[in-house]
Nucleic acid binder design. Structure first.
Length: 814
RNA sequence: GCCGAAGUGGCGGAAUGGCAGACGCGGCGGUCUCAAAAACCGUUGGGCCCAAAGCCCGUGUGGGUUCGAAUCCCACCUUCGGCACCA
């Protein structure tokens, strides 16, 4: 029986050796340039699925490549361990969330180890460890101290399935992104982080390399819009406070023929006239009953009710009616709009339906504004029907109106954002407790830092009630007030788990520090993350939160620099063999553990990297494993079964062999640099074929052959770490292949001496002639014309034009 | 509706202004074998043709720019992702 590639014999062996040697531990005091590589840590679901491998295997390959490039690479791993599934398991099966979580962590550690990734396990963090969430709570206190954490009553997204509120980012199409339940609106007092305070800065992506689509998504989510706040006086006795509206079109203010308030607007009740009371109340109640989905449907016709009250347009002096309508959102701007039906489609639809006035205030080519409009138009040439502003050109109109408003004290220019503050409280047990105490006398009081962590109590009952299970633990809830020691109650909400993952990359740098979340020295040493990789589904959640968090931490003086991750790469989604998302119900789930037992971790990793461009994802079919296995077998055989070796340093076969090796090094280096692993593997497969042919063809130069095999093992090291280590050892290399320098391509050896010149006649390929790679145009032309076929195609005519691309192509145009 | 990404053999994909289909799967033919599997070798876009040589067609559709277009420009179609009454 010949010596064959047997992953079972080698993978476990090397994994144990690497671990014993702490091969992937990144020391803090290493003089080599640091490289912080990070892949998004997994949630503790208990099972590592193909998607995790698809995300992590290429990240690992990139980290290993960096190591061979001479960097001190930190590639840490940990677990995102707080969250609802643990608690749901507790409710469904009576298991303690803690036990459930740690059992899953244990299982996943095993799966991750079998992957053979170069993780630095000594830096592991588990977000539900008190040693970790103590610092999550510490951050909360710092944010509170700086006014970035506050409590407020607001219309919150309530998920009836999860029995808790959600952040806006967690609501997808009016549904909970986790349970898919239709989200309800509830007015509750909740904790928020003032992410809006950083809105302007979050729009800047200076100095970081992030994918354009992610930046666009964040930019759209933040939704900056420039406009003005204008004040309308309510023509209602006893109401002195002005009705403020936000508009992006102050230049159309003379065309504002009515105001519309959101049904939840605080002044609705006070301005409604007795005659309209019944109708208004009915509408407000109907709106409150609507789900977010119904409310936000753009399909449905706009509805609304007249309040009976009027306001005065501060520019035209005109008395205009005040309506309420559910197309105005209480959460955006001021919750009130000035309606300009002539120049806004939505207002036009509303005005048409309820017979309200339409007054055009801009001229426009092709529109006779003396006739009733049949549609709103948003552009225009010059202001009209606008008193002293008549004739102001469109381009200057906004500024002119804003200036006037500011002079008169009836408004100002402003910037409004779609982004809202981040709602972080959750009415659930399995999260970091918010370290606050409610005292009757002193109100909300922070827990003193030295008392952290506020530990989660154990043996809790989990019946969902809509309140945190923590409220029922009397001995936990009742605490003395930190100020005067009198009886007080703990805050019972816990923090959104996105809080835990907003700073984990910071903790990896100093995971065992008991005095601080991170020491200043290690923050300077390791941060920011050099290469972050993960799924694009976190574009407006984790990836936005962590930027906010970082900027706040920077302002606290804990970290330096403006951004947490210098480079971001988002991998695509790996699909089942049928091209659909893998799901149990579809029966198209590919289980990594099975494939790893059958084919080995190297083969599985490699196949995932070979399916196509990493950022595109796509269908994964285990059938393709054959191709990878064949390649690994051939590579094995090359290293194990030597050809007849001789000393042939000057032979053409020897330079051909060297050329192939150095061209491969050149190409694979660029490919891995660009995270294009599938093309890197293709190049290595080609090299393997070339080496096999050389071996079959006869005697091979000893030195060239040995260099070839060593180069092959080195280039395979990031992709198939176990096999490469074994091949390297068998080729006589010193342990470990993962500590060797990445091979360098010698341009001289890689250069082709002769090429096949492509000869085109009128742009069509007609002939190929061998030619020196450095031939001049005259030489190329001579070689082409020497061909009988080229002469036939020229048909005796003289070329009118000749295009020569040296080393490639000659085009003769007649 | 708006924004973004993408459309190439039977399939995954390569080539981002210069030989379309690298590499791999699958198919076909072969070596080995009592046989099968594995392994290895060869072949594989479509058409014309007995075959070969050769020619023609071919990168979602239609136009354009260019000596030359999968690649650049314009219009359209389809798929996927994000946002969606944001005043």
């Amino acid at each position: 029986m010949a010596d064959r590639y047997d992953f079972r014999a080698i993978e476990g062996k090397w994994q144990a050796r690497w671990e014993a040697d702490r091969l992937y531990h990144a020391p803090d005091n290493d003089p080599r340039p640091k490289w912080y590589a990070l892949t998004m840590f997994p949630y503790t679901s208990g099972d590592l699925h193909t998607g995790h491998w698809y995300a992590m295997a290429p990240s690992d390959a990139a980290a290993r490549y960096r190591r061979m490039q001479g960097n001190n690479v930190m590639f840490p791993i940990g677990f995102d361990a707080f969250g609802l599934p643990a608690e749901n398991a507790a409710i469904a099966r009576g298991i303690d969330p803690k036990d459930w979580t740690y059992a899953n962590v244990e299982r996943m550690r095993g799966q991750l180890r079998r992957m053979g990734a170069s993780f630095d396990w000594e830096r592991e963090v588990v977000t539900c460890d008190p040693d970790y969430y103590r610092w999550t709570q510490w951050w909360f206190l710092q944010l509170y101290r700086r006014g970035l954490a506050y409590r407020a009553e607001a219309a919150a997204n309530w998920c009836p399935g999860c029995h808790t509120v959600l952040a806006n980012e967690q609501v997808v199409d009016g549904r909970c992104d986790r349970s898919d339940d239709v989200v309800e609106r509830r007015f509750l007092t909740q904790w928020f982080f003032r992410i809006t305070g950083y809105a302007e800065e979050l729009l800047k992506f200076d100095g970081i390399e992030w994918p354009e689509p992610i930046r666009t998504m964040q930019t759209n989510w933040i939704g900056r819009s420039e406009g003005a706040l204008l004040e309308f006086k309510a023509d209602v006795p006893g109401i002195d406070e002005p009705l403020r509206v936000f508009t992006t079109r102050p230049d159309t203010v003379y065309g504002a023929t009515f105001l519309v308030l959101a049904p939840e607007h605080r002044l609705v009740d006070r301005i409604t006239t007795p005659g309209q009371r019944l109708e208004v109340d009915r509408y407000v109640q109907a709106t409150a009953r609507q789900s977010e989905i119904e409310r936000l449907s753009t399909e449905k016709e706009k509805t609304g009710v007249f309040t009976g009250a009027y306001a005065i347009n501060p520019f035209s002096g005109r008395k205009i009616p005040i309506w309420i309508a559910d197309y105005v959102l209480v959460t955006y701007g001021t919750g009130a709009v000035m309606a300009v039906p002539a120049h806004d489609e939505r207002d036009f639809a509303f005005a048409t339906r309820y017979g309200l006035d339409v007054v055009p205030v801009f001229t426009r080519d092709g529109v006779d504004i003396s006739q009733p409009l049949n549609a709103a138009f948003v552009d225009g040439e010059a202001m009209v029907n606008s008193g002293p502003f008549d004739g102001t050109p469109f381009a200057e109109a906004k500024q002119a109106v804003i200036q006037h408003a500011e002079r008169e004290g009836i408004g100002c220019g402003t910037v409004n954002y779609r982004l809202r503050d981040w709602l972080i409280s959750r009415q659930r047990y399995w999260g970091a407790p918010i370290p606050m105490v409610h005292c009757e006398e002193h109100g909300v009081v922070p827990v003193p830092e030295e008392q952290l962590p506020v530990l989660l109590p154990e043996n809790v009952r989990f019946e969902p009630t809509g309140q945190s299970p923590l409220t029922q633990i009397e001995e936990w809830v009742n605490v003395p007030c930190p100020i005067d020691g009198k009886p007080a109650r703990r805050e019972t909400d816990t923090m959104d788990t996105f809080m835990c993952s907003s700073w984990y990359q910071i903790r990896y740098c100093d995971p065992h520090n008991e005095e601080l979340p991170i020491s200043p020295g290690l923050a300077r040493k390791w941060l920011p993350v050099d290469q972050y990789t993960g799924g694009a589904e976190h574009a407006v959640m984790h990836l936005l939160y962590t930027r906010f968090f970082w900027k706040a931490a920077r302002d606290m003086g804990v970290v330096e620099g403006d951004e947490p991750m210098a480079r971001l790469f988002c991998q695509g989604v790996i699909l089942g063999p049928d091209g659909n998302r893998m799901s149990k119900s579809r029966g198209n789930v590919v289980a990594p553990d099975d494939l790893v037992s059958e084919w080995g971790a190297d083969a599985f990793r490699c196949q995932l990297m070979f399916v196509g461009p990493w950022d595109q994802g796509g269908p994964y079919n285990p059938k393709g494993m054959q191709g990878i296995i064949r390649w690994l077998n051939r590579a094995w055989t090359l290293a194990v079964e030597q050809p007849a070796l001789a000393e042939l340093p000057g032979a053409p076969e020897t330079s051909a062999l060297r050329r192939a090796v150095h061209q491969t090094i050149r190409d694979v280096t660029t490919d891995i640099e660009e995270l294009s692993f599938h093309t890197a593997i293709a190049r290595l497969m080609e090299l393997t074929t070339t080496l096999s042919r050389a071996r079959e063809a006869g005697a091979v130069d000893r030195e060239a052959w040995e260099e070839s095999i060593r180069s092959l093992a080195l280039m395979m090291a990031p992709l198939t770490p176990h096999l490469a280590e074994e091949l390297w050892a068998r080729a006589g290399g010193t342990y470990s292949v993962h500590q060797q320098a990445w091979p360098e391509s010698d341009a001289g050896l890689a250069r082709e001496e002769t090429i096949e010149l492509v000869v085109q006649v009128n742009g069509k390929v007609r002939e190929r002639v061998p030619l020196s790679a450095t031939a001049t145009e005259a030489e190329a032309r001579q070689a082409a014309l020497a061909s009988e076929r080229v002469r036939q195609w020229l048909d005796g005519k003289e070329p009118r034009k000749v295009v020569y691309v040296p080393g490639k192509l000659l085009n003769l145009v007649v």
